[in-house]
Simulated scan of single mutants.
Amino acid sequence: MNAPAKEPLRILAANPSPLTGPGTTTFLIGQRHVAVIDPGPDDDAHLEAILQAARGRISHILVTHAHLDHSAGAARLSRMAGAPVLAFGDATAGRSPIMTRLAAGGLVGGGEGLDAGFAPDMLLADGDVVETPDWTLRALHTPGHFGGHLGFQWDKTIFCGDLVMAWSSTLISPPDGDLADYLRSVERLAGLSPNRLLPTHGAAIEAPLPRLHDLIAHRRTRSAQILAALRQQPDTAQGLARRIYDVHPRLLVAAERNVLAHLIALAQLGVVDFEGDLSAVTIFAPA
């Protein structure tokens, strides 16, 4: 791969929140051929800042996943710059079979805002390479936070979207998120031994391996907490979140979805059980 010639340019969107941290970071790499990674929200000021920074040289617009804070600005930026949008697929591409069934059964929402109308011009599969004289990027399918989530490897740096962040663990909200996929993707990144991870929210991760291992340990600890709580009393994801988490009420919905993701993964392993159809109000118990 072409070695990075310089640091990527960072442009921060004005959309801070408990889930986006300081806001969405759009990355620009290249000089004559500029790649825009995660164009962010459909915001006039943010899109204009991207265009000004690229100086009319945008050749590719790459999207890690179809959440509104990452992809909503892609279509308009594409029209303004005359550049194609590349991604894994539409908003539902890459969902695991169980998540597809849950979505069909009405389990939706509770996440960061699905960009339901997102439609890339070009599809990228795992391992696909996008190359110009300025740079080379390799697509990495890294589902977990989102079924069609992509990372982009730039030499020993990986633009990791929302899979990994330094300031928080990522939201895993079924049916968009899948804990089993997430753990596999985090382990895959660790196996690539990157020198640096660049999340779309928050600061760069300069020591990736310890952070990746911490995230895996965190999820295992959370699963153990959930199992311990279920042994005391069977409960729903909502009830368990209120018993386990100590967070601001605004974050309780996100906590409930994270707990549901753990419960679904534990049910697939046969560790917990439930009656009836799997849903947001299912009561779980130890198997």
Score class of each variant (00 low, 15 high):
residue 101 R to G: 02
residue 169 S to F: 14
residue 259 V to I: 15
residue 226 I to V: 15
residue 201 H to P: 07
residue 95 R to T: 07
residue 227 L to N: 12
residue 68 L to S: 13
residue 68 L to Y: 08
residue 41 P to M: 04
residue 71 S to K: 11
residue 97 P to N: 10
residue 61 I to K: 05
residue 107 L to A: 05
residue 115 D to G: 14
residue 55 R to W: 07
residue 1 M to H: 13
residue 42 D to H: 07
residue 222 R to A: 11
residue 119 A to Q: 10
residue 240 L to Y: 06
residue 136 T to L: 08
residue 24 T to P: 12
residue 150 L to C: 13
residue 58 I to S: 10
residue 182 Y to V: 00
residue 114 L to S: 06
residue 139 A to R: 07
residue 121 D to F: 15
residue 182 Y to N: 00
residue 285 A to E: 02
residue 44 D to C: 03
residue 29 I to A: 12
residue 71 S to T: 15
residue 272 V to C: 06
residue 251 L to G: 08
residue 11 I to C: 09
residue 32 R to A: 09
residue 96 S to Q: 13
residue 76 R to Q: 02
residue 50 I to G: 00
residue 136 T to Y: 04
residue 215 L to S: 03
residue 77 L to V: 15
residue 185 S to W: 10
residue 166 A to I: 06
residue 209 L to C: 04
residue 186 V to H: 01
residue 268 Q to G: 14
residue 182 Y to Q: 01
residue 10 R to K: 11
residue 122 M to D: 01
residue 180 A to H: 03
residue 90 D to V: 14
residue 250 R to I: 05
residue 109 G to E: 04
residue 285 A to D: 09
residue 190 A to S: 01
residue 214 D to E: 07
residue 126 D to Y: 12
residue 187 E to I: 00
residue 282 T to N: 07
residue 143 P to M: 11
residue 147 G to H: 10
residue 243 R to P: 12
residue 176 D to K: 15
residue 267 A to P: 04
residue 8 P to L: 14
residue 202 G to A: 03
residue 222 R to K: 06
residue 74 A to K: 14
residue 169 S to D: 11
residue 28 L to D: 04
residue 231 R to W: 00
residue 28 L to Y: 03
residue 143 P to Y: 11
residue 266 L to E: 02
residue 156 K to V: 04
residue 170 T to K: 08
residue 240 L to S: 08
residue 226 I to C: 11
residue 161 G to T: 14
residue 188 R to S: 00
residue 184 R to M: 03
residue 40 G to E: 01
residue 269 L to T: 09
residue 240 L to H: 07
residue 201 H to K: 09
residue 40 G to N: 01
residue 117 G to S: 13
residue 138 R to N: 05
residue 108 V to E: 01
residue 196 R to A: 01
residue 197 L to T: 01
residue 50 I to C: 05
residue 88 F to A: 15
residue 154 W to E: 09
residue 165 M to N: 14
residue 203 A to L: 05
residue 172 I to E: 05
